[in-house]
Design a protein around this nucleic acid. Structure first.
Length: 113
DNA sequence: TTTTTGACGATTC
DNA sequence: AGAATCGCCAAAA
C-alpha cells in the first residue's frame, strides 16, 4: 500500500483496520501476522495511537488484544467510549472483555486473500 | 545515528 | 493461577 517513498508500516495497518466489517473485531497480532511480520503486534497498537489524527477514520475500537480485552480503551477520548462503540455494533462487552470473542473474531489472513 | 518507546504476545517464575 | 520478564521491531525523540 504505497504510492511514493513515504510508505510506512502504519499505512498497511490502517488499510487493514478499515476493512474490518461492522460488528466484527480482530487482534493486534492477527493484523501483524497478516502483514507478514508476526512480531510487530506492538507496532499495530502504536499505529492505532496515531490513527486518531488521520482520515478516513480508522475503526480502532474493532481492534482488541488476543484475549478480546479492550486494552486500548484508555486512548480514546473517554475510557468507556471504546466499549460504547462496540456495543453500538451489537458486541457485548463485560468487564473490558468482548463476550463471545471467537464468534466476532475477524482474521484478516483468512478473510482476505 | 543511537536510544527509547510501547493500544502485544509468549514464556517463565 | 497470576505476576513478572523477555522478544519483538517500526517510529519518534
Amino acid at each position: 500500500m504505497y504510492s511514493n517513498n513515504t510508505y510506512s508500516f502504519f499505512d498497511d495497518v490502517f488499510a487493514v483496520v478499515r476493512l474490518i466489517p461492522f460488528g466484527r473485531v480482530t487482534s493486534y497480532g492477527a493484523i501483524a501476522a497478516y502483514l507478514g511480520s508476526k512480531g510487530s503486534s506492538r507496532m499495530v497498537g502504536w499505529a492505532m495511537n496515531a490513527a486518531h489524527s488521520i482520515t478516513p477514520r480508522v475503526p480502532a475500537h474493532r481492534v482488541v488484544n488476543r484475549n478480546g480485552l479492550l486494552t486500548g480503551k484508555i486512548h480514546f477520548s473517554t475510557p468507556h467510549q471504546m466499549q460504547e462503540l462496540l456495543e453500538q455494533e451489537n458486541i457485548i462487552v463485560f468487564e473490558d472483555k468482548v463476550e463471545n470473542f471467537k464468534k466476532h473474531f475477524w482474521d484478516p489472513s483468512i478473510e482476505l486473500h
